[in-house]
Write a protein that binds this DNA or RNA. Sequence first.
DNA 1: CAGTGGTCTAGACCACGTG
DNA 2: ACGTGGTCTAGACCACTGT
Lengths: 261, 261
Amino acid sequence: MNSNPATTTPTSGAGATEVAPASSPTFSPLYQQIKALITQGLESGEWKPGEIIPSEVELAARYKVSQGTVRKAIDELAADNLLVRRQGKGTFVATHNEDRVQFRFLRLLPDDGDVHPHVSRLLECKRLRAPAEIARQLDLKPADPVVLIKRLLQFDGETTVFDEIWLPGAVFRGLTAERLAEYKGPLYAMFETEFGTRMIRATEKVRAIAADPSVAELLNVAEGFPLLSVERVSYTYGDRPVEVRRGWYVTTGYYYQNDLS
Amino acid sequence: MNSNPATTTPTSGAGATEVAPASSPTFSPLYQQIKALITQGLESGEWKPGEIIPSEVELAARYKVSQGTVRKAIDELAADNLLVRRQGKGTFVATHNEDRVQFRFLRLLPDDGDVHPHVSRLLECKRLRAPAEIARQLDLKPADPVVLIKRLLQFDGETTVFDEIWLPGAVFRGLTAERLAEYKGPLYAMFETEFGTRMIRATEKVRAIAADPSVAELLNVAEGFPLLSVERVSYTYGDRPVEVRRGWYVTTGYYYQNDLS
DNA sequence: CAGTGGTCTAGACCACGTG
DNA sequence: ACGTGGTCTAGACCACTGT
């Protein structure tokens, strides 16, 4: 269990009977090791999104640690949005499917606060060789195959967002315009259920830019109109980048919401 | 200690000897009550920003609970950035002064990733009666006194940000242009040390807009130039709003950073 | 009722920082 | 050497959800 350099033998540490925290350089707490083991189970597909994972008592037995240690590991994984606790029921693998919190990755809200469902209009879905910049961001070799998706989002009938989405071709083998068109629900839900790739976190760079002619036409605004430019890189398990997304947002009647805390 | 409706008498609950969790409607965990008590101490000024608070053992004794319960309360307060734990030293009240993480509230970063210190240029600081919209956001009565600060931020010599900052006059009594000019360091550090008001969290609404003539001149850009408009409302203890800030950002060579997790 | 996560306690030992 | 927070355990009971 304990993979620290100094300790492999159970000692009398911490009132424990099975394992003991190491007492030397590069000390790693037991619960972090458990956290890594559970993450491994998620990544390997042992427990799939939406499914329940073994109870705390079971995991404690499996890993030969106390329930409290498993609890702390799960606590952190839940804080990272990898797991979801439900009292009385169990602990579940987080999913983009039934989470009513799908707005974790879409920060554009209407000024009047109402909840308008949005509609996606697919423009294009093609495969090509990665441009240098995209390859760099996706951690691919230049000219590796990638998928490029272009789409519009309409909020309440108004065309508000234009997206260019770049995905590694190797991971998204078999992704076609047809399958995209068929699928109902959020893109990330599809990626998760159809391609086994779950988006964990993302970083965004936001800028104000002037609409160029092509984008202006798509979004029904004048050339030079101020748009929000949003460059997103999304990561999956192990902090591996698996999506680069460039969005152009019309922010009249809508705003990009952010909470600093 | 326990303020639940059903329980005031110590029972034999949870292996405890002093208190017990309630067993009825509107149940509130002990550690949350402790959390509230500690927050109260912060708000009342018993422990000031930068100071150390009593050790976990001391607090446990004071509140007649176990150290583990105090620990959980402090854990959450640390997660909320109200406290800072330092192993071997103690637990401290968070401060905007010596935190090297002052970029929690300034999300504008240069494209090249370098760390350019920014310089503030005060344009104006006057007192007036709150416009209706500002009064609403600050939870004041219309025409209540407010302070309005206008300033520019220069990054590496370039004028990049224009800010209009609205503060409740009652709280910021004695805030003048002179005192602002004197003070070195972040604005929030000054608010904290000089006016006893600590900013805890904020929400921002970001939009792309065209520069109007007056702002264009201040920022050295053409009229109509795309700017990032950032509307911030900041809150202090008890989620009371104490600042409304409107910022205009030039995002050429800079971007607004956001992390979705 | 049994099983799950949630709370609480008590006590041990470890790692860190400072005398 | 001592005090601080950090980790780990063991065991009890509570709250919630299903059978």
